[in-house]
Design a binder for these strands. Structure first.
Length: 645
RNA sequence: GCCGAUGUAGCUCAGUUGGCCAGAGCAGCUGAUUUGUAAUCUGCAGGUCGGGGGUUCGAAUCCCUUCAUCGGCUCCA
């Protein structure tokens, strides 16, 4: 007999060799039907593997990540089986479960996969899953595995096996399909009831752009059709929040092929939002002791040779521009830091002056590959809310913490509650990729980790993601369909102070090297506004709304009164318009609701007589009437509430 | 840049296997209407069917090429 401990702490005895599935069956038939995978002593495994010693057991259903993972991973195998049966000779790369669904990278040989094939795959998968095929695991030696896949001609699998240690290799089979796989898998395909093959894309083998491009097929499956329907509905709904669509509908920004791809044109209303954000942040920065600076959009090539950016990124930037006569070369600035370092160098600094916080809304230009461009989130010209903190090494941690505070403050005002904070460290196995001393790196990494901890910031630590000049902390926010975008970032840099020979006089009257922090809060105004649009579906908070209210006269008879109200509100600094069209009130309300105007002010006979406006709040309907002055105060108070924390 | 898909009016979309002068709704402009909380009616205008080649008696439709966009990959200072 063996003892099995459950998550609630209870312990039961079973025969040695019992499987997790059998344990579930003994608990309840219903559980046995729903359970998808198990964790035995901390290791996620198949439900059908025998348990041979005293163990801790966790049974995973759909709601657990582990359950979904096994489900989608098994679905990937099912898809591979379908593909192999449709196009024998297809070679397989890898086919993992992902956050939403799964994919498989395949090499279809001469067959070019198209969307029509996706439907065929989907249908074949449905046929196969209906057969209730069992997933069977087999542990094999490296030689056996190599022989099997060499024989099959699956060169990608052979390459993968080559990297694995003998004794750790397992195969999973279902139906006529066998795959190299660590598992775990579902007991059988019968759980996979709802199947959708979503899309098709190219993907480089092992993520290396120098290697062959395989065909990646994305799919998603669910245990119930209803869940699939809901997921597809969610995707449809999310598309409505796409910032590119809303940006066009609300006339916020546009792109022009004549101007060039990836170069956003801000329309008046979008520009209003942008300006409001800049003014908002500038106010905060002044309070926090930042100095605002301004620098040109170009810089001499030598500036970037000094900074090291030319060597490292010159090829990826826009090519330098030359002067007609003297042959000087200038670059469109890809970042603001070199300029800021020269501002630092313009005046002598004492240890008493530090930290020096230098901020600029700096527009930068970066050559992004054409396929990378994406609405406002990935562009070739964008304005960073950039700042550099020059500080003494002993001030680094406090500076770091103050920036975390600032980021969280701004996120809170904007209701960005679902962000990920990622600490990016250097790859300990590849130290030569980075510059700077071990001592500095260790100190900087420790400072970041501890600063984040002291701020109770929940973080994900990712080694190998640091910038070449220092570790960093990034803040990521999701868009409507769940893609993550990096907004704010805080980076420690020992490199530029060195390259620009930045110094300050210490209390010992010796020259010392300051440490530099790069930081953004919004990241860039373009990306920030994009994420803001997707998070609010264009229903901006009042303080950011380009138009606070629109006055809707019941008929043209009340246009004069409407103009009086308009003047009063605009004088109170509340941006307001009149809808003077000779449309019925219902139509005017509808149109302005669709434009996401926060408040509609209806004026007719009643209001003119009593000197009031009828207030209608976006999405909420009639709020009763008040005097225009009261409305102005009300709006001012609302805005104050929104941006005061 | 790479793989796949898409490209018809400002926007959303129709346009059978190639065949009269390329259609609709919304938006725009006219005129009527003077309206009480999510769509009043009339008329007009608007398109080199992304661009360029080709096949054909004839191309939005078929082929080639190019540009842009979308979904991914790679990249992201």
């Amino acid at each position: 007999m063996i003892k099995i401990t459950f998550p609630d702490g209870s312990v039961k005895e079973y025969n040695e060799g019992i499987t997790s599935l059998e344990v579930a069956e003994q608990i309840s038939p219903r559980l046995a039907k729903e359970v998808l995978a198990a964790t035995v002593n901390g290791e996620v495994t198949d439900l059908t593997r025998p348990i041979i010693k005293d163990s801790r057991l966790v049974l995973h259903k759909w709601d657990d990540e582990e359950g979904k993972h096994a489900f989608w991973h098994s679905s990937a195998h099912l898809m591979a089986e379908a593909i192999e049966s449709l196009w024998p000779g297809t070679k397989f790369g890898i086919g993992p479960a992902i956050e939403n669904g799964f994919y498989y990278d395949i090499d279809p040989g001469d067959h070019v996969m198209t969307d029509a094939d996706l439907v065929m795959i989907e249908n074949r998968m449905k046929e196969l899953s209906a057969k209730n095929l069992n997933f069977k695991r087999k542990d094999v030696s490296k030689k056996e595995a190599l022989d099997l896949f060499s024989q099959k001609g699956d060169e990608y699998k052979v390459e993968l096996i080559g990297d694995l240690a003998d004794g750790t290799i397992s195969l999973y089979s279902q139906g006529n399909f066998t795959d190299l796989c660590r598992g775990p898998h579902l007991p059988s395909t019968e759980h996979i009831k709802a199947i959708k093959i979503l899309s098709l894309a190219g993907a480089y083998w092992r993520g290396d752009e120098k290697r062959r491009m395989l065909t990646r097929i994305y799919g998603i499956t669910f245990p119930k059709q209803k869940m699939l329907d809901e997921y597809l509905l969610f995707l449809e709904e999310a598309k409505k929040r796409d910032h590119r669509k809303i940006g066009r509908e609300l006339e916020l920004f546009t792109f022009s092929q004549k101007v060039g791809m990836g170069l956003p044109l801000w329309l008046p209303k979008g520009s209003d939002i942008r300006t409001t954000l800049i003014e908002f942040l500038t106010g905060i920065l002044r309070k926090r002791g930042y100095k605002i600076v301004a620098t040109p959009h170009i810089g001499n090539v030598n500036l970037y040779k000094t900074s090291g950016h030319y060597e490292k990124y010159g090829a990826d930037s826009f090519k330098p521009i030359s002067t007609p006569q003297e042959g000087e070369q200038f670059m469109l600035k890809p970042m603001n830091c070199p300029h800021h370092c020269e501002i630092y160098n313009a005046t002598p600094h004492s240890y008493k002056d530090l930290p020096l916080r230098m901020a600029e809304f700096g527009t930068v230009y970066r050559y992004e590959q054409s396929g990378e461009l994406h609405g406002l989130t990935r562009v070739r010209s964008f304005t960073q809310d950039d700042a550099h903190h020059y500080c003494r090494p002993d001030q680094l941690r406090e500076e770091f913490k103050s920036i975390i505070d600032l980021v969280l403050y701004v996120f809170k005002i904007l209701n960005f509650n679902e962000y990920t904070a990622q600490i990016s460290l250097r790859d300990p196995n590849n130290k030569e990729k980075y510059i700077g001393t071990d001592e500095n790196w260790e100190r900087a990494e420790r400072d970041i980790i501890e600063a984040a901890a002291e701020k109770n910031l929940e973080t994900v630590v990712v080694p190998g993601e640091a910038a070449f000049y220092g570790p960093k902390l990034d803040f990521m926010v999701k868009d409507a369909i769940g893609r993550k975008w990096q907004l704010g970032t805080i980076q420690v840099d020992y490199n530029l102070p060195e390259r620009f020979d930045l110094t300050y006089n210490g209390s010992d009257n010796q020259k010392h090297r300051p440490v530099m922090l790069h930081r953004t809060i919004f990241g860039s105004l373009e990306r920030f506004v994009a994420v803001l649009i997707e998070n609010t579906a264009g229903k901006f908070p009042l303080w950011l709304a380009p138009e606070k209210a629109v006055i809707l006269p019941i008929s043209e008879k009340y246009n004069d009164y409407a103009r009086k109200v308009l003047e009063l509100l605009n004088n109170s600094d509340i941006c307001t318009l009149i809808d003077e069209r000779s449309e019925k009130i219902g139509k005017k309300i509808r149109d302005n609701e669709l434009k996401r105007v926060p408040y509609l002010l209806i004026v007719g006979e009643k209001e003119e007589e009593s000197g009031t406006v009828s207030v209608r709040k976006q999405g909420e309907g009639d709020k009763g009437s008040m005097k225009p002055e009261e409305f102005a105060e009300f709006v001012a108070a609302e805005i104050k509430k929104e941006i005061a924390l």
